[in-house]
Amino acid sequence: MATPTRISASEITEKVSHLCMDANFNLNEDVLDALRDSYEEEGSPVAKEVFAELLENAKIARECQMPMCQDTGVAVVFVEIGENIEIVGGRLYDAINEGVREGYKKGFLRKSMVKDPLNRINTGDNTPAIIHTEFTSENYLKITFMAKGGGCENMSRLAMLTPADGKAGVINFVVETVKIARANPCPPIIVGVGIGGTFDYAALLAKKSLLRPLGTKHADPDTADLEKEMLERINNSGIGAQGLGGWITAMAVHVERYPCHIASLPVAVNIECHAHRVKTVVLGNFQ
């Protein structure tokens, strides 16, 4: 066994704290590009004005280092950890949660987590983060932070379709989900779709699909075609930016597929608002 690569818990905390603020203040270039393209393409004057406001908003948020949206989200954290990585001076999940605690305090971000879904007492520091971990053979620790807003998360849906429902059934469910959501998830949206796996895994696939940069094509041509068809059907709805009517309801549809049981066809739709806040850091030995 090779000598482990050591990463300190305090470094993880510091990086996560920074990611929380960076994600909420500085919209990524791929999202800005998508908003600029949408501004050019949109036919409705009211919706066009919404795109202009969103671009101006992103600029102000960056310049003033203030959150682009007051709902600074649930902290969703994706971890890829090399099997040869050793965390020293603390535990990985504790270090991540400490980073969220620190970032939300220092960045004047809103704390939106409650201790219990029924008793509804705020935890006061936006923890716990929702953490998904994957082991890899790489020699690094990759942490991707996503600030996920409540409005769009609430409009997400999952169905256990039958194999006979097939592709048409999946597309109809995705389009129907967006139509039910209407203005509520803050369109223009990004639609994450997970097809296959199990009940729980489909939802994770849907969320993970959102991490792919906007404007990139899926590596699998069949899935890329499926994304294109779904996007067209969604944008035929006329819902438009903020639900005020327009040609662009979604800026992208991302699909991930996975093997599943012979009896099952799970499909999960995770809706993301235009304030698509994702930032990544890589720690350890890497090229």
Partner: peptide
């Protein structure tokens, strides 16, 4: 932006109907 005026008009309904493609 005015979404509902005093005359019962609804921009959400009318705006979407205008840009919907069947």
């Amino acid at each position: 932006v005015v979404a509902n005026d005093i005359y019962g008009n609804d921009l959400f309904r009318e705006g979407v109907a205008k840009y919907e493609r069947k």
